[in-house]
């Protein structure tokens, strides 16, 4: 097992750390950086609970080696609210009842966040496709989709 000195830009903050070659980005972010907002649901890339944005794109952090993320920008759920202010997606999740047990919520919000950066006015089907890799067992997804659509509207208004 090799050891590697890497640096990660996580939520705009630079972290230098030494990691072992076989550790996942998920484990390093949770254990070493103590950012426990991302969740381990399966550790096999099947559920999306560990979603982070790697250079802006949603990935399953359980399927990325920490050493592979060297020098890359990572956004976790802790980086979504800015200066203590919730993002419109987070507000919409609360208002629309898109949260139940909450275990899928961080990954779901990050995926939605990435979607709305690429597509300011997504159709329902586009939202469904975008979040299809984030399993949720509680909500039946309806209120999540409603929330993302509503957040897109709010963001458009805010940007106009």
């Amino acid at each position: 097992m090799s050891h590697h000195n890497i640096y990660l830009m996580v939520n705009g903050k630079r972290y230098s750390l030494e990691v072992e070659s076989d550790r996942s980005l998920l484990d390093v972010v949770r254990e070493d950086l103590n950012l426990t907002g991302i969740k381990k649901g399966c550790d096999k890339g099947d559920c999306g609970a560990c979603t982070v944005l790697l250079n802006g794109k949603p990935v399953n952090s359980c399927m990325v080696l920490a050493v592979q993320a060297d020098g890359k920008e990572i956004t976790t759920i802790e980086g979504v609210a800015r200066d203590g202010k919730l993002d419109p997606i987070q507000v919409a999740f609360i208002k629309h009842g898109a949260v139940q047990c909450g275990f899928c919520t961080p990954g779901m919000i990050l995926t939605a966040w990435a979607l709305l950066r690429e597509n300011r006015e997504p159709m329902r089907e586009e939202i469904q496709k975008a979040i299809s890799g984030n399993l949720c067992r509680c909500t039946g997804y309806v209120q999540i989709i409603d929330a993302i659509q509503s957040a897109a509207r709010v963001s458009r208004v805010n940007n106009e």
Binding site: G45, G48, T51, L54, K57, P58, V59, N60, M63, V64, T111, K129, A130, S132, G133
Partner: peptide, 9 residues
């Protein structure tokens, strides 16, 4: 193929 997250990797 797979999920959006999988396709991104």
């Amino acid at each position: 193929l797979g999920s959006p997250q999988i396709r991104n990797r």
